[in-house]
Design a protein around this nucleic acid. Structure first.
Lengths: 214, 214, 214, 214
DNA sequence: AATGAATGAGTATTCATTCAT
DNA sequence: AATGAATGAATACTCATTCAT
C-alpha cells in the first residue's frame, strides 16, 4: 500500500518535500499528517520518529527553506560595487527564486500566517531577516551619501511588504503571467522611495548588474 | 448556562462582534463556533439560524468590516484639492482606523489568509479594492502632471503591501508603540516612490491636509 | 417568505399533505419539520400548535391514510356474492389504490418501518387490520366449504406479505411498469394457496366480478 | 474508560458484532457510532480507521450477514432429490436460521429499510437473491412437470414476501412463540400456491427430506 | 391560530498523537 | 528506523421542540 521511495533520499527529507507540496496545495491546517506521509512513502510512526510534532516539522521546513533562500541572496550580494547595487541585486534574486519555486513562495508567504499568535510569531523572523538585510544596505548607502538620511528601518519593512504583495497577487491571480516582467518597475519604484533614480544608478556603475559578464 | 444579552443589539450583530474578537485572538481555524456563541450570549442553534456555515459567517463579517472601512476612506477623500492629497488622506485614514481598531486589523490582515485557495481568493477583493482606489488617484495625478507617467497598477499594489506590512509588524511585535508616529515617514516614502516630495506637496497646498472644503 | 396557501384547506390538512410528500421522498427520518412546514406554507409554531410532536403527526397521517384505504376496501366488498369473491375484490382494490397513489404506498409500506421498536409497533395494526379482514373472509369461505379447513390466520398474513412485497419491488425498481398487469396472476396464486382455482371461481358465479363487463 | 477486549477477535469483527446488536435494538438511525464502539470495546478513531463511514459499515455488515445466510441455504439444497424438495429445504433453512438468530433477522428484515431511496436500493439485492434462488427451482420444477407452467418470477417474489411477513410479525409481536411451529403450514401454503400438495410431495420421495422424520 | 427566533442535546467525522511490535 | 492500528478530544452542523409576541 505504501509507495516505494522513488530515490535514495532519507525519510526525513522525503517527508519535508512531501510536506512542502501538501502545504502549498492545501494550506497549513489543510495539510494532514496522513496525506504527507502517504506522499512521502512513509508511515505515521516514522513521521513521529523524525519530528516531535506536526508544528515542529513545519518549523524545520520553514527554517530550511529560509536558510536556502538567505544563502542565495547573500551569494548574489557578493561582488556588487555599492550598497544600492547590493540591495537591488537582492531584490532580483528574491524575485527570481520565488518565480522559479512557486511552492516555496506559497509556503513561505501564504500558507503559514493566520493560525494563532504562536505560529505567526514563529515566522516573523524570516521577514525580519530580509528586512534587516535590506536595512543594512540602506544604512550603508546613507552613510556613503548615496541616499539621503531617513528612517531606513521603516523603509526596509515597506520594501519587504511591497515585494510580498506583488508575489502574493501573482500566486493568487496569476498576474502578471511572468514575475520577471515586473521586476524592473518594482526595483525602480523601491529605489525611488529612498530617493534614487534607477537610471542614474546604472549610469554611475555601468558594469554593475550582477552576473553581467555573461 | 446562557448569558443574558447585555444590551438590545440583535443576535446577528452580537455573533458578528464576538466572532471578531475570537478570530482576532485565535485565528480563523482556532475560532470555534462554540466559543463564539458563548461570548455572544447565544446558542449554536441560533448561530446556524442566522448563518448557513461558519465560513459564510466569516464572509459576512469581512464584507461588513471592509464596507465600513471603505466608507471611511471614501469620506476622507472628499474635499481634498488634488489626487495626491486624496491618496495621502486615504493612507492617513487607513492607518488611523487600524490603529484605533486593532481587532479589525487582525481579522482583515492577519487571520484570514492561508486556509486554502478558495478562502484566500475570497478575500483578495478587499486588497484589490484599496489597490484600485489608490491607482485611480495616481492615474489622475499622472494625468494632471503631478507625477511622472509610470506603472501605477504595480505601484498601487506595492503601496498596499507596504502599508500592510507596517501594520502587521505592529500587530505582531507592538512596534512602533504608536502607529501614528510612523505615518508621516510612511507617507513620505510612498510619495517618494512615485516621484513626489511630501514637503513640496504640502507647500503648494499648505492649508489642505484637513478635510478643507476649498 | 412563506408560501401563500394555494387553496382554502386548513393548515392541519396542508401539513399532513406536505408531510406525505416529504416522507415519501426522503423517508421518515429524512423528513424534517422545517421542510414540511415550508412545503405546507405554514410555520413551525403552527406545526406544534396542531400536533404535539413530529411522531404524533406521522401517526395521525398514517391513521388517516389507513382509514381511507380500509373504507375503500370495505366498499369494494359490498355486493360480492361469496367470501372468496369478497377477498378477491379486496385484493383488486388494494392494488388499484396503491397503483394510483404512489406516495400513499411509499409512506405506508416503505418509509415507516425500521425506526426503533416503538414506531414499528405503532404501524403493525394496519397490517394486522388487513390481515384480519382477509382472515375473516377465508374463515367464512371455510365455513361454507368453499375452501378446505386450514390455518387461515397464517395464510392471511402470508397474503399481506406477498402483496406487500410485490408493491415494494414496484416502488423500488419500477417493475412491473404497471401494477395492474400482475394483479390477475397475483390473485390466482393467492387463491391457489388456499386451494382454489380462480377459473373455477368465476365459472360458478359468472355475474360476480363487480366491474365484470370489461 | 476503554473496555479491555474480551477475547482475541479482531477490532473489525467486534465492531461488526456490536453493530448488529445495537442496530437490532435501536434501528439504523438510532444506532450511534458512540454506542457501537463502546459495546465493541473500541474507540471512535478505530471505527473510522476500519470503516470510511457508518453507512459503509452497515453495508459491510449486511453483506457479511447475507453471504453467511446464502451459504447456509445453498448447503441445505445439496442432495435434495427434486427442485421442489430443494425449494422446500431452503424455506426450512431460512426459517430455522432466523429463528435461531433473532438479531440477524431484525437487522436484515426490519432495521434496514426506509432510510431514503439510496439505502433501500442497496439492500434490495438480498431479497432479489432469495427470490431468484426460489424462482430457479420453480422453473426447474415446471420444466420437469412437477408443477404447471406459471409466472414463476412473480410467485417467487410472493414467497419471499410471505416468509418475510411471518418472520416480521414474530419479531414484533412474539407470535407464534416458536417460528418452527408454523413452518409446516407455511410450506404447505406456499407449495399449494404453485399447485402442489405437500403430502403428495413427501409421498413420492419418502426418503428425501434429509432430516426425514415426517 | 400563527410566527419565527432561540435552544441545546445529539451526530458523524477528523486528526495529531501514541505505542506495541 | 519503521509500521499502522488505536486513541479520544475536538469540530461543525442538525433538528425536534419551545416560547414570547
Amino acid at each position: 500500500m505504501s509507495r516505494t521511495p522513488t530515490n535514495d533520499t532519507t525519510t526525513y527529507d522525503r517527508i519535508l518535500e512531501a510536506a512542502t507540496e501538501v502545504i502549498a496545495q492545501q494550506g497549513y491546517s489543510g495539510a494532514g499528517v496522513q496525506e504527507i506521509v502517504e506522499r512521502a512513502g512513509a508511515s505515521k510512526g516514522s513521521f513521529y520518529f523524525h519530528f516531535p510534532s506536526k508544528e515542529k516539522m513545519v518549523e524545520a521546513l520553514v527554517v530550511r527553506m529560509s536558510e536556502k533562500l538567505v544563502a542565495k541572496v547573500q551569494d548574489s550580494l557578493e561582488g556588487q560595487p555599492t550598497p544600492l547595487h547590493r540591495v537591488a541585486a537582492s531584490v532580483d534574486t528574491l524575485m527570481e527564486t520565488f518565480a522559479r519555486q512557486r511552492t516555496v513562495a506559497q509556503v513561505l508567504l501564504l500558507s503559514i500566517i493566520g493560525h494563532g499568535r504562536a505560529t505567526d510569531k514563529r515566522f516573523l523572523p524570516i521577514r525580519e531577516g530580509f528586512s534587516q538585510l535590506i536595512q543594512q544596505e540602506l544604512d550603508a548607502a546613507a552613510d556613503t551619501g548615496q541616499i539621503p538620511a531617513q528612517d531606513t528601518a521603516l523603509v526596509a519593512q515597506m520594501w519587504v511588504g511591497a515585494i510580498h504583495e506583488v508575489i502574493l497577487r501573482w500566486l493568487l491571480t496569476g498576474k502578471p503571467s511572468s514575475l520577471a516582467s515586473v521586476t524592473p518597475s518594482l526595483k525602480a519604484a523601491l529605489l525611488r522611495s529612498v530617493g534614487v533614480d534607477l537610471a542614474t544608478l546604472d549610469l554611475h556603475h555601468p558594469s554593475a548588474t550582477g552576473r553581467r559578464l555573461a
